[in-house]
Simulated scan of single mutants.
Amino acid sequence: MIYDIRHVTTYNYESQVSFARCSLRLEPINSAGQQLVSHSVDIKPAPASRTMRTDFFGTRTETVLIENPHRVLRIDSRSRVYVERSTPGRGDDSPPWQTLRDASFDSSDLSAASPIGYVFASPLVPILDDVTAYAAISFPDGRGILAGAVDLMHRIRTEFKYDPKATVISTPLQEVLEKRHGVCQDFAHIMIAGMRGLGLPAAYVSGYLRTIPPPGKVRLQGADATHAWASVWCGKRLGWIGFDPTNDILVENDHIILAVGRDFSDVSPVDGVIVGSRKQKLAVAVDVLLVE
């Protein structure tokens, strides 16, 4: 499948901003099952400089400096991506989760693809006893990693309510667990924290969902903005598998990967600092269209 993606971020400031430094993570990655065909970002006002780097996780990050005074900052990202993934079935066999836990800690590979980088706490995903206990219900002794992750994903989907007004990025994970309300970032963080608490590698993935579903299928939650899900290491044979707890589905061809990291703080599409306005309004619009 080929997708055209448009991601427009607009900041409206209460008063004039004299300087802005932004980090943009808006270029979809090239990975197994996904190929970036084209990508461009238009920024108004025009930046004084633009520099590109690739971070440890393989995310292309652009740093822009804006020195013209402005009240509105508009970042218009457009990409074309080819997606063709092979995903295991929900009931397929997989190694026992304890075997993968032990293999993760025995790994001597320190690359971004290594499981060892995703088993420890990270800035937005602490290891919490309550979250670990919640996840442990899905992982009795000897259960396959795939079956356990599917069960945990399903429980989050059925026991938590999608509620965009319930949380913000800074809402503590303990509060999300207690409220059982939140959005895709919260559900991904809960799943990741629970699995890491058991010693299992889980990464945070930001990306997009197909906006218009195939005929006969329901529209997925999170399709109007950037989406988030978990990626779980399922051993050398299966590799990293995506699990979307917001929609209770394995990641296949309706998902486009933007970036991978330990949690949202590693992959925020746009962040930075400004000199000027005390108040601002943020608007984000995302379109993901299948190219016929």
Rank of each mutant, 00 (worst) to 15 (best):
V183G: 07
K279C: 03
V72M: 14
T10Q: 15
S86R: 14
T59M: 01
L65C: 08
Y13A: 04
M52N: 12
E159T: 15
S265R: 02
Q280P: 04
Y204S: 02
N30D: 13
S107R: 04
L258C: 10
S40A: 15
T63Y: 11
S40I: 07
T51F: 01
R237G: 08
A121L: 04
T61Y: 03
A230T: 02
L290E: 12
S86Y: 07
R74G: 05
D130E: 15
S206A: 14
A166Q: 01
I2M: 11
P95M: 14
E84W: 02
C184P: 05
N12I: 07
Y162A: 03
D186N: 10
R143G: 07
D254K: 11
L289Y: 11
V251W: 03
S170E: 15
T63Q: 11
I274C: 09
S114A: 15
K279N: 12
W240F: 04
A135E: 07
A285P: 06
L26F: 01
M153I: 10
T61V: 13
R25T: 06
D266R: 00
F105L: 12
T87E: 12
A188Q: 02
I249H: 02
L36M: 11
E292Y: 11
D186E: 13
A32K: 12
E14V: 07
I29G: 03
L200K: 03
S114C: 10
V218L: 12
F243V: 07
I75F: 08
H189V: 04
A188Y: 00
T246W: 05
G197V: 07
L282S: 10
I127A: 07
P126H: 09
I75L: 10
G89M: 05
I137E: 15
E14I: 01
W229H: 03
Y3H: 00
I137S: 13
G142L: 13
V37S: 10
Y204L: 02
P28D: 11
L124A: 12
Y208T: 01
P214K: 13
S79L: 08
G239T: 08
I192L: 06
G182F: 03
T87P: 06
L200H: 09
A133I: 00
P45S: 00
W240M: 05
T171A: 08
K161Q: 15
N68E: 15
L128A: 11
